[in-house]
Design a protein around this nucleic acid. Structure first.
Length: 162
DNA sequence: GCCAACGTTGGC
DNA sequence: GCCAACGTTGGC
């Protein structure tokens, strides 16, 4: 089986819509509703099962990283694009050529204390991390390994990253 | 609720 | 292909 170095990601979710608690309850979820090409391309082309994900609460008080998830499936078409009653319905997407692609993610850990955006911004070692950049709206972002590990340290997380 | 910083759409 | 208008994201 082909192996590759694990990659690291940050995925944003509004806790009103789907929080880390929701993922802990469900254990696994389709990351549906992504309607941005760059974010889609990361899921479609770059992610692999086992990649680790910083789970980020956006539009939250305060915003920040609240836990860790893991990529749990290969990419496949987002079913909501074909569901007429879904807010993510896309009438221009064809079943034989789906426009929107997602992956499943599974719960790994919920931090006892969130690592707030303010904390991320204040940390010298996280310079250059996309999420701390002004105007960075991308809801799925690649994260450097050193940044991922630093965030775990800030969370005093006990999980092992091996 | 405001609005800056995007990304997308569509007329030309 | 340019770019104005529009829509969305997301911190504040």
């Amino acid at each position: 089986m082909a192996r590759r170095t694990r990659r690291y990601w940050l995925m944003k979710s509004e806790p009103n819509a789907y929080s880390i608690d929701s993922l802990e309850r469900d254990q696994r979820a389709e990351w549906d509703g992504i309607r941005n090409y760059q974010a889609r391309n990361f899921m479609r082309d770059e992610m692999a099962v086992g990649d680790l994900v910083l789970f980020y609460h956006s539009n939250a008080k305060p915003p920040g990283v609240v836990g860790v998830a893991r990529v749990a499936s290969a990419p496949y078409p987002d079913p909501t694009q074909f569901q007429k009653r879904s807010k993510y319905f896309d009438e221009t997407s064809k079943r034989d050529d789906p426009r929107w692609i997602l992956v499943d993610v599974e719960f790994v850990e919920r931090f006892s204390d969130l690592v707030s955006l303010d904390t991320l911004k204040a940390d010298k070692r996280l310079e250059g991390m996309l999420v701390v950049k002004k105007g960075q709206r991308l809801s799925i972002q690649p994260v450097e390994k050193k940044h991922f590990e630093r965030v775990l340290t800030l969370a005093k997380a006990t999980m092992r990253v091996s």
